[in-house]
Amino acid sequence: MTAMLTIRDLHAEIEDKPILRGVSLTVPAGEVHAIMGPNGSGKSTLSYVLSGRDDYAVTGGEVLFDGRDLLAMEPEERAVAGLFLAFQAPVELPGVGNANFLRTALNAQRRARGEAEIDAVRFLKLAREAARRLAMPEDMLKRNVNVGFSGGEKKRNEMLQMVLLQPRFAILDETDSGLDIDALKIVADGVNGLRAPGFSALVITHHQRLLELIVPDRVHVLVRGQIVRSGGPDLARELEVSGYGAVIREAAA
C-alpha cells in the first residue's frame, strides 16, 4: 500500500528544549493509526509540528505527505492539501460567528484548489445537516467560535469542522478526553464515516474506549519523544491493563 504520511527521524524542540527525539512513522493510505503515551511525551507537539505551528523548531528529519515535503508548506497549504488537526485545546474566536468561520475555511480551501465557492444558503444547509448528525444544537452555528462552549461542545465543534472540510488526513489530539460515551460514539462515527481507501488518520488518545469504536490498524506508543513500541489493536488493550510502566521499562532496558 502507498504511504500517505511518512515521518522519518523527526526531531523538534521548543525554547531549546528537545521534545521530539527521532520519531519515525508511516501511515499508509486508508489506515488509521493510534498514538498513545504518557502525558508530556510529545503527542501534541507531534500534531502541531505536522500542522505547521511555528513555535516549534524542527531540528532534524523529514515528513512526506503524499510524497510532498510537508514541513516546507505553510499551515494553510497543508490544510488545502487535506491535512486536518482536531485540537486538544480548541481556540476561542470572540467576534467570529461559527457559521461564518466554517464557511470562510471551506471556501478558502476550495478557492485554493480551484473549486467554486459555496454560497451562504447552500452552506448553511450543509452545516445544519452535519451539526444534526453530530447531535449539536443548531445555535452552536450562530454562536462565536468556541466561546462559552463546554469542553465537550468544543470537541464536537472540531468534529463538525472535520466533517465539513472532508480532509484526506485527520489528526485527532485527545478528542475523546472529557467526552461521555454518547459523545464518544459521535466522534467515532465522524471518523468512521470518513474511512475510505483515500483517507487516513492519526488518533491520539489515552483510552482504549475510543479505540474499541475506531479500530486502529496500528498502535504506537510515544515515550519521551520517541516511539518505543508499535503493534496491532491488541497493544491498546494490553496498555489499558498494564499501563505505560512496562513499556517504558522495556524501552529503557
Partner: peptide, 19 residues
C-alpha cells in the same frame, strides 16, 4: 487564533483581517 484559522486553510492575511 491566527494559527487556528490557518490550520483550517485560511491564508494568514485573511486570518488577520478576520480577527
Amino acid at each position: 487564533q491566527i494559527f487556528y484559522l490557518r490550520s483550517r486553510g485560511v491564508p494568514e492575511r485573511d486570518a488577520r483581517t478576520l480577527l
